[in-house]
Write a protein that binds this DNA or RNA. Structure first.
Lengths: 69, 69
DNA sequence: ACTTTTTTACTGTTATAGCGGTAAAATGAA
DNA sequence: TTCATTTTACCGCTATAACAGTAAAAAAGT
């Protein structure tokens, strides 16, 4: 388990939003390469760029830990 | 709302784990500057480095959207 | 009080993410 | 099939994140 992959999720959401990689990139204010990399699960992307893309797609990020719960 | 800040959460978890920034950095395999930046909410850090730090602290990341739920 | 530890905040250097451009491969539509 | 669109995968260039030092400021102990 826990082989969750963010890339495919981003791709799926983008598709359902009817956006191309380039359109998403422009909306998020990042380069097309960054969107491509994110969908390819390249984790060396910058956190702020990833956040920008997720924001456009209405994907929220939550952090959880035993202490938080 | 939604002014959630990851930095303080990381710092809190690190403290409760009894780690210094340097120790956490070494455990996560990143430089001390990166840990410092994360705790300062600097979002230009790389996603993989952030993940490494969160992994050490047992902080899980979840992505949610109306489509996912 | 003093001392030690940790954090903050700089540095200069190096590695690489990000960028737009390009072009080939893949996908999809007519 | 053909044609248009999109995605993938390169390229070279530039900007900057990451790094190890260093040192001063802050915090924690004694």
């Amino acid at each position: 388990m826990d082989d969750f992959e963010l890339g495919p999720m981003v791709k799926d959401h983008r598709k359902k939003a009817g956006l191309t990689q380039l359109e998403l990139a422009n909306l998020a204010g990042v380069g097309k390469t960054t969107v491509f990399d994110i969908e390819k699960n390249k984790e060396t992307v910058r956190w702020n760029n990833l956040l920008s893309v997720l924001r456009v797609l209405n994907i929220k990020v939550e952090f959880k830990s035993p202490l938080t719960k």
